Computed example of a mutant assay.
Amino acid sequence: MSKCGTHGSLPGASVQGKSNKFAYIWVGNSETQCPGQCAWPLHQPIYGPQSPPLVAPNNDVGLDCMVINLASLLASTTTNPFGNGFFQGPKDAPLEVASACPGVYGKRAYPSYAGDLLVDPATGASCNANGAN
């Protein structure tokens, strides 16, 4: 309940005398677990400037923000799966790739403003990617 999600590693089974590790990711339900922190920009933030939240692309704040958090954790797990990969700053408090620019989703982003995003004219939902259909 104290994090939007986390990643780490654990020892795995030994294969031919070599010990292995595996990486994992855990992501919570952003709408019910700390929505003011984990579901921004699709939920009102609990602190800072209070700009209106964006409309969720799939009309499901919890699921859409879980995807945002999962994508961030996938980037961090890919670049720093075992805590000894790519990061900035001290090793005991690493700033990972997804933590370097949190809340920046488009041009001209600043705290409480996710940036200039695409807007679906039919639903008013915002997104920073344009997929098929």
Rank of each mutant, 00 (worst) to 15 (best):
Y113W: 11
F87V: 03
S112W: 00
K107I: 14
P94Y: 01
S99A: 10
L117S: 01
D120R: 08
P111E: 09
A100K: 13
A114N: 00
D120E: 11
V104G: 11
F87H: 11
G103F: 06
L118G: 09
F87R: 01
P111V: 10
L118D: 11
D92W: 10
L118S: 07
A93E: 11
S99E: 10
D116T: 15
G106A: 02
Y110A: 10
P90C: 04
L95S: 09
A98G: 05
D92H: 14
A93V: 05
G106T: 04
K107R: 15
V104A: 14
A98W: 01
C101D: 14
P90I: 05
Q88T: 09
D120T: 09
Q88R: 11
A93Q: 13
K91Q: 11
P111W: 05
F86I: 15
L117M: 07
G103M: 04
G103T: 04
G106S: 06
V119S: 10
G115I: 03
G115D: 05
L118V: 05
Q88G: 02
Y113Q: 00
K91G: 03
E96F: 01
G115V: 04
D116M: 12
Y110H: 13
A93D: 12
F86N: 12
A98H: 01
F87I: 01
D120M: 06
G106R: 05
F87P: 01
S112E: 01
Y105H: 09
A100M: 15
P94D: 06
F87S: 07
D120K: 08
Y105L: 07
L118C: 11
S112I: 02
P111M: 06
F86W: 15
A114I: 00
A100S: 12
G89F: 02
G115Q: 03
P94G: 09
R108N: 15
D116A: 12
Y110W: 12
S99C: 08
Y105D: 02
D116C: 14
C101Y: 15
V97C: 03
D116S: 14
G89H: 02
V119I: 13
P90R: 09
D120W: 08
G106L: 08
A100R: 13
F87Q: 03
V119A: 09
A109E: 03
P111A: 05
A100W: 14
A98Q: 03
Y113D: 04
D120V: 07
Q88V: 12
P90G: 06
D116N: 13
F87L: 02
V97P: 00
D116Q: 14
R108F: 15
F87Y: 11
P94S: 07
V97H: 02
G115E: 03
A109S: 10
K107W: 12
C101G: 08
L118I: 10
G115H: 04
Y110V: 04
Q88P: 00
G89N: 02
S99T: 06
A98T: 01
A109H: 08
A109G: 06
F86C: 13
E96N: 08
V119K: 12
A109M: 04
D116V: 15
A114H: 01
D92R: 12
L118H: 13
P111C: 07
V97Y: 10
C101L: 15
R108G: 13
P111D: 06
G89P: 04
L118E: 07
